[in-house]
């Protein structure tokens, strides 16, 4: 861990963390309906997968496949209809928001601020769940926030206003706030959506490095097939609310399967790294 004692966890906890599985999604399902008397408008059928510490899981699928709903279930924002989701053995949706925020950080699609704030104020918000009732930030909080900004290469943005920095810079500051939460589990909902290709690569490189250094478990929702193939250790492939496959990209990236899921002709090649690469073939 690069950032010293501030980021170190208690010894007893680290021993427990050494056990393999950190996140366990067990036969989780969900149904959304506007009116309880009617048939559900949208469902997620029983989905299971497990993730270890330091592992990056990509939830992949076309629009309306249930990716974001699955992420909301994992974040504890929604309670599953059946099944359960465990984080280090605790059922996530029964934790209080405060305890949850100490263990799970969520990076959502870009949020708008009502009133202007500076980047450092924004990152310090990540310490909220660790503070006491009236919450004046301690020197330790400041150190953690500074480290978080440095870890995503955004130290120089500290004093900038959030509404005056670029999309890619903003995404890094949002990620820094999530790191300041010192979570066990980092959830990201389409983090690369509004970023140019360099910023996308930059963000995902940072994620891979952080997952390795700090042993975060990372779950990313995306429909970027190639980025998922390049960065994920595991892929959860979703279609119309069903979890079709779970496994390493090399096992999931089969031409027929992806063509059927994404409803478009494509080709899959395996590069020298052993990771698959997808080319969409329009008009064939």
């Amino acid at each position: 861990m690069s950032s010293g004692s501030a980021l170190a966890r208690k010894p007893a906890e680290s021993a427990r963390l050494a056990s393999e599985v950190r996140l366990s999604v067990e036969q989780v399902s969900y149904a959304y309906s506007a009116n309880p008397a009617q048939a559900p408008l949208f469902t997620v059928e029983a989905t299971s997968f497990q993730a270890r510490r330091g592992e990056i899981v990509a939830i992949l699928g076309p629009n309306a496949s249930g990716k974001s709903t699955l992420l909301k279930l994992i974040s504890g924002a929604l309670a599953p209809l059946s099944g359960r989701i465990l984080l280090n053995g605790f059922v996530i949706h029964t934790l209080t928001p405060r305890t949850r925020a100490q263990r799970i950080a969520v990076v959502q699609q870009e949020s708008t601020l009502l009133f202007p704030a500076r980047a450092w104020e924004f990152v310090l918000q990540g310490r909220h769940a660790h503070g006491h009732s009236l919450r004046f930030e301690s020197q330790e909080d400041v150190v953690i926030a500074k480290n978080a900004l440095a870890q995503v290469g955004a130290a120089e943005l500290s004093d900038r206003w959030m509404d005056q920095i670029s999309g890619g810079e903003k995404q890094r500051v949002i990620l820094a706030r999530a790191l300041a939460q010192q979570p066990l589990l980092l959830l990201l909902d389409e983090p690369t959506l509004h970023l140019d290709i360099a910023a996308q690569i930059g963000l995902l490189d940072a994620l891979r490095r952080l997952a390795a250094e700090n042993r975060y478990t990372v779950v990313v929702v995306t429909h970027e097939l190639n980025l998922a193939a390049e960065y994920a250790d595991q892929v959860v492939l979703m279609q119309r609310g069903r979890c079709l496959r779970v496994g390493p990209p090399a096992n999931i990236y089969q031409r027929e399967l992806l063509e059927q899921v994404f409803q478009t002709p494509l080709s899959v090649e395996f590069g020298s790294s052993g990771r698959p690469r997808v080319t969409v073939l329009p008009g064939t």
Partner: peptide, 13 residues
């Protein structure tokens, strides 16, 4: 200020 969902993820009841 950033929205109810985001506040919840930061530990606000």
């Amino acid at each position: 200020l950033a929205g109810e969902k985001e506040a919840m993820h930061l530990g606000v009841d």
